[in-house]
Amino acid sequence: MATLLDLRRRIRSVKSTQQITRAMKMVAAARLRGAQERIFNARPYANQMQALLQSVTARTEFRAHPLLAERPVEKVLLVLVTADRGLCGAFNTNLTRAAQNYFSEQADKQVSVIAVGRKGRDYLHRRGTPPLSEHVGIFTRLQYKQAQAVAQQIVEAYSTQAVDAVDFLYNEFKSILTQRVRVERYLPIKPLEPAAGEALIDYLYEQPAAELLNSLLPRYVETQVYRALLESQAAELAAKMTAMDTATNNAAEMIDSLTLYMNRVRQAAITREIIEVVSGAAAT
């Protein structure tokens, strides 16, 4: 039987764990607010970019552009966006499971991977398929520049025909309680059809439309990548917050049951002592 002292120690240690999980939950909540705001702030740019691209592609021979050209897919590049740290519930596990599925689906093709986030990189190393390149530790201070770096890499791989398609695997931020694993094809860029009923405006161009498209498309990819990274970041923080909330509650439950048990043990010890005293007195 556990002694009183052991139980007290145990309770103290659970309490301090609870304090840590509670603090982690608060931190995640605070950072989540910032991340959500950033998604919100990035939206107008992404929307305008899309509208712009729509109107340019609608009036150019855009099929000719290397980033829009579809070719038979033999080699695919997967960008796996995971978190840098654990302690966020099933966030990373869901991703690695989805990656596993992806690999078996694409078994007939040559798959290479770019890892964003430490957990994904570690997973790939364990699996024995080291990533082509890795972007680790970018989520603590996520900036547009980092999305640019990833985007440049995939654009280059695609336009040099090193790969025939680029897919993104990431967690989408649905709400604080739910994240959804998504697989999206980023390259080739799907031609954007203008929304029905929308009149096309005839623009004056300062430079040839094809040239404009040339600089517009890589930027479009950048905004897409940036969005995926922001979503993943927000989803990670939300998952962490929920996980830490559960952990804090579990710790509270554990403390309760341990305290109850400790009191029983103490009661038993007292009773035993009394019996000893009484029987000692009776013997004399």
Binding site: I201, L204, Y205, Q207
Partner: peptide, 13 residues
């Protein structure tokens, strides 16, 4: 480029 109200639609880098 100077843009005043009523400018014709234009797209530029």
């Amino acid at each position: 480029l100077g843009i005043l109200p009523g400018h014709a639609p234009l797209l530029t880098e």
